[in-house]
Write a protein that binds this DNA or RNA. Sequence first.
RNA 1: GGCCGAGUAGCAAAGUGGUUAUGCAGCGGCCUGCAAAGCCGUUUACAUCGGUUCGAUUCCGAUCUCGGCCUCCA
Length: 459
Amino acid sequence: MSLMIHNTLTRQKEVFQPLDDKRVTMYVCGPTVYNLIHIGNARPVVVFDMLFRVLRKQYPNVVYARNVTDVDDKINQAAKDNGEAIAEVAGRFVSAYHEDIAALNTLPPTVEPFATDHISEMIDMMSTLIELGHAYAAEGHVLFHVPSMADYGKLSGRNQEDMIAGARVEVAPYKRDAADFVLWKPSTEDLPGWDSPWGRGRPGWHLECSSMIEKHLGETIDIHGGGQDLIFPHHENEIAQSQCAHGGKEYVKYWMHNGYITIDNAKMSKSEGNFFTLRDILAQAPGEAVRYALLNGHYRKPLDWSEGTLEQSKSALDRLYKALELAADVTVSDGVEMPEAVMAALEDDLNTPLALSELHALATALNSAAELPEKSQLKAQLLVAGQFMGLLTENAAEWFKWSANSDGLSDADIDALIEQRQTARKDRDFARADEIRDELKAQGILLEDTAGGTKWLRE
RNA sequence: GGCCGAGUAGCAAAGUGGUUAUGCAGCGGCCUGCAAAGCCGUUUACAUCGGUUCGAUUCCGAUCUCGGCCUCCA
């Protein structure tokens, strides 16, 4: 079975064939670090982490680059408001971002380039584009001249007439064509800037990705990913810059875009204010439950984030952890391979919901298996498959004790009450035993009497 | 206006031209002091209207509804 990927460029699923199977290259647009990331920003991080994991399994060398945009007008504004340098604002939110996504069990990318470390590469690319007649300088700006590229718009399926008809912004007087976009813009004294042949200025948004990809991955890469809202104009403009700077050479073989997260079926976005930060969500549930929620829908479909979303994911994971807990004393078989059904689901354009259902099938099989060799095998498969997907990395017993806050009963308090209940049960004082159980339940603690003693979990 | 996507049972969510998705919830049974958990069984589906077909939720066409991009945005 080979990896199938839905390519935005062709709007079809295609067999993935890397340019060089000794070095597979993938790039994903990362965050602009001017505040905490929200759950919508976390979706591509988790989705492409899953892809990275699949690719690493199939190819010996996968170079995964995910950038950080650390210069941008929103960062500039935040820095100005706080009276600090943009590097301080960016530094603070990069750390927060790293912490937040680590909680989702995402692997670090191979390279994490920062925009401000690549100003000279950007200047070089602009010089090339100007030389080749694809860009021009005007009033301190450098602009990409869209009509200089014959097939501009192929990713988003637009043509120039559409764009002019749909233009909702005033066209700046220095633009030769309404569709031209900014590569470089001048900075006044109070704004961060870098010296360039066109004066002191700062880069436009699209240029950094083209420059960093060229530097770290090459002129043509295998996979480029990001959210659907980046298709136009961001990725379209990246294609324009890179393809034109490289004499028409193909920029990206496979474009992949994840759907957005919605709230009440409306797109979550920072500018609309209808968003939940990942940090807030992580206070309500374990990171794995958040990861599960993101993987429980197919990456190309919209995912509505509602009140029950986390709860449902937590319950589904509880079931998997329960199977592991029931098999706690079963030794795990050595050298167990990834179960084929799980791998096949993931290879089919990352069908994570199907892969997760296979995890449940393994849990059911493990729960009902009677013989030890079979149990060892199934437990191993569940762990291998789950951990491949970045799940089931916790100790099962600890998982059920997860608590959103430190209020309420401590683990020791609970154990003490359970002890009292055990005594009551031994004395066949079931009224007292049930009373204690009800008291605990009122505090969100559920009990299970098993052969190995009484177990408890937090709801 | 142009382009793109979605509509599956109470909820979430896969998938398929004819056979159980899966999880949560519900119901019945086993188990249990009673529960819980687990196991077994089970009830609710494929927006609407046409067409193709022996047969369509699945293919084709139309319609309706919802959402997104065209401007910073994952």
